[in-house]
Amino acid sequence: MKILAHPETKVVLALLALLGLLELGTRALETRLSKDVAHLRSVPAAAARFQSAPKETLRVLILGNSLSRCGLDRAVLAAGLKEKLGREVVIEALTPDGSRVEEWLYGYRRYFDQNQAQPDVILLGTARLHLTDNPPAVDKLAAFYVSRPDLSGYLKDYARDVESASLALTARTSMLFAHRARVQPLVFYNLVPGYTETVQGINAQRAKSAAAHMKGASAPPLTCAAFDRLLSTAQASGTKVIVVTIPLPDEYVIPEEVAKTAQAHQTPIVLFGQQLRLPDTAFPDAYHLSETGASDFTRQLLEPLVPLLSTFR
């Protein structure tokens, strides 16, 4: 008890108490603070709906990011599939903002595969480079996507040094730490005049100098280890995966490595990136599809999708 008499012990305890309170507050309020977190926290309920769906129901999981969330009209998709396939359809989605194949792999494994809530079909929505490997934000992935059984393997794959492993484990332990990166943009984008324009300007300048720096240097080869693992995980439980390329204002081509990996797993790719021409008005923010654009696109998607699904029981 003598140690408690020291003022510095009280200072340290006060700091720890403050951090503890903030941790509790963050955990209690996190779904109100971020739509993305609210979405992630709703995923277990979606998995439960798959579990409780009658056997003859077609369970479809949309795996992707905001491109898929805005680009696929779930109501149109459900109605279309029900009409063409003559089956009840349950559609759920795991489509967090800014996510890529690493988040989809671990998110799918944690919320669906390891909970015995596998869908019949996964519609994997992607643009050009979402399915190729990319060093992920280790803390974000560890905090929100990686399951406990996957943790050691995840650390081995993505957090090989002390720094990354510490970051991942701290984020996993503390939601306050995991959410810390949301505060700065929230404050600055809203309160600092000219911040958005400045950040965009600096990023553009950096991209330009990085491109100039890379000119002549050979880019590292693209790999698809996470995509490969996602396909293997899905197929191990009999889930069919269909890759759907979501339209963007500009045409794009899926990398050869992605096509090869999909082919190796006999996974079809429904290509729209190159073929579908939508007017610029369909992309109000020059990136995501509008509601009308999404309905149009989803209707067109049904055409190639139905034959692929009709063989599936």
Binding site: V192, P193, G194, E197, T198, G201
Partner: peptide, 8 residues
């Protein structure tokens, strides 16, 4: 914009 941001 940059000056405003820097100053802020």
């Amino acid at each position: 914009d940059f000056a405003q941001t820097s100053l802020s």
